[in-house]
Write a protein that binds this DNA or RNA. Structure first.
Lengths: 230, 230
DNA sequence: ACCTGAACACCGTTCAAGT
DNA sequence: ACCTGAACACCGTTCAAGT
């Protein structure tokens, strides 16, 4: 991987920012396993030990990379003038979806940060971004937490699964072939045991991932809307 | 970990079943990182190389362990007499939730298997278990795939996040303290930036995980119900 | 056919030593 | 203050050699 000779002369001194930046590139290129202190130090034209002066350990490095990307992902601008709460939720959800889609390792890291430090820098930002429009929807206060949690779990879970799926085949082209093969396998399942799966086999073949993701968001929003009228 | 001297004399020969069984114990005790061919071979009173005669590699071993647990998790019995589709979905969802709760490493493995082999042994079983009751709900056929996918992604995503959360504190006791601290942190957030998160801080403190999970399922079911009437 | 255990090519992390 | 790079204690996996 990364065939280009990239021993970029070290003009500037090592810095936390440079390290994080290079770590993200490594992660994007080769996934979680691709981030190695040896590979990283080579890119930075230094020794593995040097990194430890700027960063406590690998976990902290991953947390820093995650933090940087969440900031970008949630920068969907302030609520626009004519923007409905539903629009807002879709925009935030898609911001996270796309970030995880482009950086597949990010899903696992977000999940880890949410459980490890629910009051850290990442969790409240995501929660707030989804929660404000949920509140604006006019849901009774008693279900704010429930609705926002469910939405956040769906968004992150679905995005993560989608990114993992996308990684199974190449960047783009083989997707159609992969889905076609899977769809055919579904059609060949035992009719007695798998009637439903067989019946939706061609919906698997033809579906669009992003659309599917948004349809899930819409389902939850419809459910939330029901709670509002109750 | 595992302090008890457990060099259980090897009475029976090594077998794939014994290996998988012992692997699950290791995974449950110490998580994904706890499964090591060296630790495993010690428990089995053999050398690390021996395992490779029965199992291709670590991935295959994890897949086998996952398969075994999914079989158990989905054994919620055949649709009972007076059971509504909603009841059925809740039962299947809880079966998966509990399995992942008891075996936190299972979430990641399920996700991996779903993307790696959508037509393998695991994905269709889960999909069918959730899809049949979705169909029974009377949803138009065109939205079967969408609804079932969204439900599956929510169930697995939320269960996985929950299991990760639960692992942050001890088996049971410290949960209250942990949530209390997190809730207090939320209350101390900047009122201008985090009004929503602050407002739900005590809902975080008092919530029940399983209940919350089911509330999310209910939200999706309500959304699906809307589609039915449309 | 089944198992052994040393060996290989990796990891993250530490730390004395340098500048 | 910041960096170097050898060393430590691990990994998964392979493979000649044994029974």
């Amino acid at each position: 991987m990364t065939p280009r000779t990239r021993t970029r002369r070290r003009t500037e001194a090592l810095s936390r920012e440079r390290i994080v930046e290079e770590a993200v590139e490594l992660l994007d290129a080769d996934g979680e396993g691709g981030l190695t202190f040896r590979a990283l130090s080579e890119r930075l034209a230094t020794g593995p030990g040097a990194i430890y002066w700027h960063v406590t350990n690998k976990d902290e490095l991953l947390a820093a990379a995650t933090d940087a990307l969440v900031t970008v992902a949630l920068t969907v601008g302030p609520p626009a003038a004519g923007e409905s709460p539903e629009d807002r939720i879709r925009a935030v959800a898609l911001g996270l979806y796309d970030a995880i889609d482009h950086h597949p390792w990010l899903g696992a890291q977000l999940s880890a940060q949410i459980s490890r430090s629910p009051s850290g820098t990442v969790t409240p930002r995501i929660f707030e971004s989804l929660g404000q429009p949920i509140r604006a929807l006019g849901v009774p206060e008693s279900s704010w937490f429930t609705a926002t949690s469910a939405l956040m779990y769906y968004v992150l879970g679905a995005a993560r699964q989608n990114a993992a799926n996308a990684r199974t085949f190449g960047p783009d082209v083989d997707r159609a072939r992969f889905l076609d093969a899977a769809s055919s396998d579904w059609e060949a399942l035992d009719p007695d045991e798998y009637p439903f799966t067989r019946a939706v086999a061609d919906q698997l073949r033809d579906h669009d991932d992003r659309e599917q993701f948004l349809a899930g968001v819409a389902l939850i929003l419809a459910g939330v809307g029901q709670a509002r009228r109750a």
